[in-house]
Every structure is written in structure tokens, then in C-alpha cells.
């Protein structure tokens, strides 16, 4: 396969659009959650200000090489996930670096950041970080299980591991979406989606009221700014995978924005309605409620 250099500026453009959309979208979601609590919440541009402030801190301390690499791994997990998945279906410009087996790579990248973060947070030496990491890894692992099952079901259904081909198979009307052709897989994946978005009921890892504040306890200044950038990019990148696999992908940016917003809104909707799970409760919930749906999806395919 020939590598085309023009892909690099194209994917940078995708990254730029997605990062900015992510910053605005997370702020809008925070505002929506605040409105449920009868507050007005942060301004929509607050994320940019926090980012500039964190880059502008004059002093920062490091705990070692892994501490430094933790946020870098985390961010490369988010960026990698985004770059190896076609963002806009059917365009050369925004297909990024997608290739025939990208589905497996996407699955790997979803987990990559969490592992990098675990190494980095562990070196910071703060007990709260260690507790947060062990909680986070066990919860993410449990949440990943139904998603993996759903992905296998979808791959079996369409007989391919290429996300582009999966999107192509879903074109031609809403009823061709995996949502309708394989509802069990989508149900399992959406339950798993709740677990990876760090919103209630599955935000015990990061919630400031529990263990302050989990893995990033020691992170500050530019390290924290990298993590914040990832918090804008990673959810969108993950939603792009979901959108491509289950909701027919997006053929243009307006459709992309709308679908990403709605899928994100699903997790916020659940989050404001339900209280927080403890880790052992959430693991049990994933194993009891979500995994059987994934198994059914595979059996039915």
C-alpha cells in the first residue's frame, strides 16, 4: 500500500476540528448537567481558559520518567484512536489512516491510555493515585468486556475487520444501521459506553468526593493540560468508533456533530438520573447486565 503524505495534514485538520469540538462539547455537557441541578454551570469557553492557565503555570515538579510519560501515553491513546478510524465516511480527506484491520487496533487504543496512565500515576507515589488506578483499571476492564463482545458480533455479522467496510454495509437508510440489524450488540456496547465515559454512575474513579481525585491527584500544570486535552479528544474518538460501528457513521461534518452530540448526551442523560456505583457494584452490573447481552448478540449472529 502506498503511503500518501497528504494524509498527514488531513488528519491534523481532523484532529484540530475534533479537539475544538471536544472542548466545546464537554463544556456544553457540563452545562446540561448543571441545568439539571438548577445551576447555570461553567461558560462554554471555560475549558480553553483552564488549558491556557495550566500551560501558563510557572513551576512544575516531576516524579520521574513514567510520571512524565503517563499523560503522553494517555493523549496518544486518544489521538491514536481518532487517527486510525475513519471520521467522515466516504471522504478521502477525513478517512485518516484507516486500513483493513483497524477495528482490532481501535480496541487496543481504547485500553492503551488507561494503562499508560496507570504507570504514570503509580510513579507519582501518592496513595490516592494508586487507589484510583486500581479502581479505574478494574472498572474499565469490566466495561470493556461487553464492548469487545459487541465488536466481535459486529465483525462476524459483516464478515470484516475494517471499519470503513462496516460503515459501508450500513448505508442506505436508518434501518440498515447495526442498531436495527443487531440490537443486542448495540445494547451491550451502549451499556459498556456508560462505563468508559467517566460520568455517574461510573465515575467513582475520578469523582472528587470519593478519593481526591483518583489517578491525576499529583498531576498539575502541563501534565494536567495534556490530560485535559485528552479528556476532550478521547470521548469524541470513542464516540466516533461507536457511531461507525452501530449508528451508520457520518457522511458529513453536520451529521457527525449531531450524532456525536446525541451519543454523548446518552451518557449524560443516564449520569444525571442515577447515583454513583461503587467499583464492585459497577463490575457486578457490567457482568450481570451487559455481558449476557453481548453473548446473546454473538449467538444470534
Amino acid at each position: 500500500m502506498e503511503f500518501e503524505w497528504i494524509k498527514i495534514p488531513y488528519s491534523m485538520l481532523t484532529l484540530f476540528i475534533v479537539a475544538n469540538y471536544g472542548f466545546l462539547l464537554t463544556a456544553v455537557m457540563a452545562k446540561i448537567a448543571a441545568r439539571v441541578g438548577r445551576r447555570h454551570g461553567i461558560p462554554v469557553w471555560q475549558n480553553y481558559l483552564d488549558l491556557i492557565k495550566n500551560y501558563g503555570l510557572r513551576s512544575s515538579i516531576t516524579h520521574g520518567v513514567m510520571y512524565y510519560l503517563g499523560p503522553v501515553f494517555r493523549l496518544s491513546g486518544g489521538v491514536g484512536l481518532l487517527l486510525f478510524v475513519p471520521t467522515i465516511y466516504g471522504t478521502e480527506m477525513f478517512s485518516n489512516m484507516s486500513f483493513a484491520g483497524d477495528l482490532i487496533l481501535a480496541l487496543y487504543f481504547v485500553f492503551f491510555g488507561a494503562l499508560g496512565m496507570a504507570l504514570g500515576a503509580a510513579e507519582s507515589g501518592h496513595p490516592h493515585s494508586a487507589i484510583g488506578v486500581s479502581r479505574g483499571l478494574s472498572q474499565v476492564t469490566a466495561a470493556e468486556l461487553p464492548f469487545a463482545l459487541a465488536v466481535f458480533a459486529v465483525a462476524l455479522q459483516y464478515q470484516t475487520l475494517s471499519i470503513t467496510e462496516i460503515v459501508a454495509a450500513q448505508q442506505g437508510g436508518v434501518l440498515h444501521w447495526t442498531l436495527f440489524s443487531n440490537p443486542f450488540a448495540v445494547a451491550a456496547a451502549m451499556l459498556s459506553f456508560l462505563g468508559s465515559m467517566m460520568r455517574p454512575p461510573f465515575d467513582v474513579v475520578l469523582a472528587p468526593q470519593e478519593i481526591p481525585i483518583g489517578p491525576p491527584t499529583e498531576y498539575h500544570s502541563s501534565y494536567l493540560a495534556l490530560l485535559q486535552t485528552n479528556r476532550a479528544i478521547f470521548p469524541i474518538a470513542k464516540i466516533v468508533v461507536y457511531m461507525n460501528l452501530f449508528f451508520g457513521g457520518a457522511a458529513s461534518w453536520p451529521v457527525f456533530f449531531l450524532k456525536v452530540f446525541l451519543i454523548y448526551l446518552f451518557s449524560v442523560f443516564v449520569g444525571v438520573a442515577f447515583p454513583r456505583f461503587r467499583v464492585e457494584q459497577s463490575i457486578r452490573w457490567f457482568l450481570v447486565s451487559a455481558v449476557p447481552l453481548g453473548v446473546i448478540a454473538i449467538v444470534l449472529v
Binding site: 448543571a34 445551576r39 447555570h40 454551570g41 461553567i42 471555560q46 472528587p208 481525585i213
Partner: peptide, 12 residues
């Protein structure tokens, strides 16, 4: 609702 003015609370 001080969040409107960019004031947030951090635990660390």
C-alpha cells in the same frame, strides 16, 4: 453558583 465566574473547586 460560582462556576459561572470560572471558579471551581479542586480536591488536591
Amino acid at each position: 453558583d460560582a462556576y459561572r465566574y470560572g471558579i471551581q473547586w479542586r480536591p488536591t
